[in-house]
Design a protein around this nucleic acid. Sequence first.
DNA 1: GGTAGCCATCGAACCGGTTCGATAGTTCAG
DNA 2: CTGAACTATCGAACCGGTTCGATGGCTACC
Lengths: 335, 335
Amino acid sequence: MATIRDVARLAEVSVSTVSLALSNPGRVSPKTLERIRDAVAAVGYVADPLAQSLARGRSRMIGFVVGNVGNPFFGDIRRELENYALEHDHFVLITDSSGKLDRERALVEHLAGLKVAGLVLAPSGHGRDYVDFVHGLKIPTVCFDQKVPGIERDFVGSDNYLAGAMLTEHLLQLGHRRIAFIAGPHHMHTASERLRGFTDTMASAGVEVRPNLVVDGQFTRSAGYEAAMRLLIQPERPTAILGANNAVALAALQAMQELGFNCPDDISLAMIDDVQWSNVITPRITMVVQDTLKLGGIIARRVLHRIMSPEGAADPPQDFVLTPRFVPGASCRRI
Amino acid sequence: MATIRDVARLAEVSVSTVSLALSNPGRVSPKTLERIRDAVAAVGYVADPLAQSLARGRSRMIGFVVGNVGNPFFGDIRRELENYALEHDHFVLITDSSGKLDRERALVEHLAGLKVAGLVLAPSGHGRDYVDFVHGLKIPTVCFDQKVPGIERDFVGSDNYLAGAMLTEHLLQLGHRRIAFIAGPHHMHTASERLRGFTDTMASAGVEVRPNLVVDGQFTRSAGYEAAMRLLIQPERPTAILGANNAVALAALQAMQELGFNCPDDISLAMIDDVQWSNVITPRITMVVQDTLKLGGIIARRVLHRIMSPEGAADPPQDFVLTPRFVPGASCRRI
DNA sequence: GGTAGCCATCGAACCGGTTCGATAGTTCAG
DNA sequence: CTGAACTATCGAACCGGTTCGATGGCTACC
């Protein structure tokens, strides 16, 4: 592997001139520049990113930290970020915290050690400690999905209150009154907002929400399955189930199928967020989806803006909240 | 951030002794070792991974390169690798080539520049150039999923011939004769092996394979959908469709649903590889699945073995081929 | 008692770049 | 013709570690 000294020797200039020529071509005489460029081509020189990062104190990499890279929601955003970053000569390091707080922390610290230029983070923590931790990072950071109160960082996400409200309203208009809600972890902003959208809308319609029809599904498949089972074995079963995310809703569908209930004839179902193969799932689930491509685009532009422009770095943190979209399916019946 | 010189100053030893003490505690006197350890704790010293990698010429990171990190097959393997790597103090860098050859190459080169200790690669290329490229990497590498002929590297994968043969045999035993096959890219080893398993088994049973019933689905959803459509609009429709992977098979299911065909009453369907929500897809698809956890375990152990032990580095390349498992569903009817 | 051998520690060079103050050489105004 | 201002280039220090040959003190053997 050729080093910068090989280039310098061949071009008969000093090492510092080569470095200058490559990072700031305008400040070197045309003649010298040409000699250096020829030499670079001749020895096939490529700067060592490690050495560059060490010397500069920062790399051209962007850390991407989410709870589950397999989730298509994160996948779309990742793809947008990767493409945009690549156009601007940056490289995305993907990491997966499995939703575990300590793992996330270790990952972020590792990325900070790698001196990443920026960080795109779907937070899985909350509370004072966590806020302090994120705040202590001297790295341009864009948070998304989970809005963590107190974190003074850019945030990009969807209107989760509205998402919960839209589906609730839809079910109410179809005549449902006994609507169950499978919630996510209460400390997660998305989860609490979606729940709030549900309860508020029910209240506005003057419909009582029975406490035993609001169950916790932890946003996971297994907990969602158990929660759904608890709902389905009640004597007064709900006529509709609203899943706060894709995992709990599909777990509920599975539970229904296993117990012999037909959806939507026996029980209606609606969910927030799509899954990859939703259009071969029978029935097509009625849902509210986020505009992942747009979210990804905003995230990408925002983080690279902060990284690359001096005024961008100084920009005060800003929130970007998108309106989710209602996608009708065949899983909700009029009663 | 504290540096090694801060530690040296506080412990009143030289920098080189600190370095020695941390990397090889046995070669430093107990007294000195203790002073150094106290100093490390006092200043909160953590070695800069970048500087270490630069000096050592290699990092403690493992590059993971696949075509689609959203695919649960890769997800399971990634998780196994991450856990095992973490236990051995290594860190996995995930990258996604989107199945594009040039992108994969750029990623691998970037990882090489980062001086990764090892590489876990699901190749998406083939041919002389590609083999030379991979061969030129002076990095412990484990390839998986795609067996590329000529690459002298460890390989971990499943018996794809058998996978194709098992499902074909199953359909034959149910009485099917007009069986269609939606294939993958012919240059991919998994695709060609699965197809070979199909044609061989058909031939052994003395059943003719009509050329127009073998279509190319490129292993993608969109191409699979088109291929399925071509099959379904033929006057002599197949009685069963065998999808060479999950994407083309589910795309076929979608096409059937859209054209009003019932599965399995009108047409049976079987596929190779699972998807995340397969058990809420109606009908439950009959399939052959790979033991992803085991594959991931083998991959993880193999690459870390090569990285960490001197004899491991010298081991000749080896192939590990696992037997896939038949998972009956409700998508294949006796005729 | 002299010296061979070992052990703990150190200094210096190195990994491959960046950065900044210093130094010539050139241009231009007075 | 002098000196200020600017330009092109360079040397040295630095980023934060690792590595290896050198050094000096100590034990042990003859």
